[in-house]
């Protein structure tokens, strides 16, 4: 799994590629929590276009990120969910908890 960060004004976009599974979810969790708690980024957008798989530990990382964003009054936004990622959030009944958009442009305009 690889993660790179782009910054625009008050927004950080994390481009994630690979699988967010037991081997790699802690890295996602660490970076997302760091954006909110240490960098105080007002808006963090996760680009999941190149994420092939998310397991329950990956979902847990996203939920922790969401809670951290709410704690500091920031926003966590997802876009580019693969059918597998969408399915996992659906099974977890978490789809409505997240701000989810189809593309980066729409996510940036939201």
């Amino acid at each position: 799994m690889q993660i790179s960060t782009r910054r625009f004004d008050k927004t950080a976009i994390l481009d994630i590629s690979g699988d967010i599974d037991l081997a790699h979810s802690t890295e996602v969790r660490r970076l997302v929590l760091s954006e909110f708690r240490e960098k105080k980024t007002p808006r963090v957008i996760l680009n999941l276009n190149d994420v092939n798989y998310i397991d329950s530990s990956g979902v847990a990382s996203l939920v922790e990120g969401l809670k951290a964003s709410r704690d500091v009054g920031s926003r966590l936004i997802l876009f580019g969910l693969s059918p597998i990622a969408h399915e996992v959030l659906q099974i977890s009944r978490l789809l409505k908890m997240f701000e989810i958009y189809d593309t980066e442009d729409i996510a940036l305009q939201a």
């Binding site: 397991d55 329950s56 847990a60 990382s61 939920v63 922790e64 809670k67 996992v88 099974i91 977890s92």
Partner: peptide, 9 residues
Amino acid sequence: RPGGLGIHF
């Protein structure tokens, strides 16, 4: 909350 989803899956 985070965690506890694996068995559900």
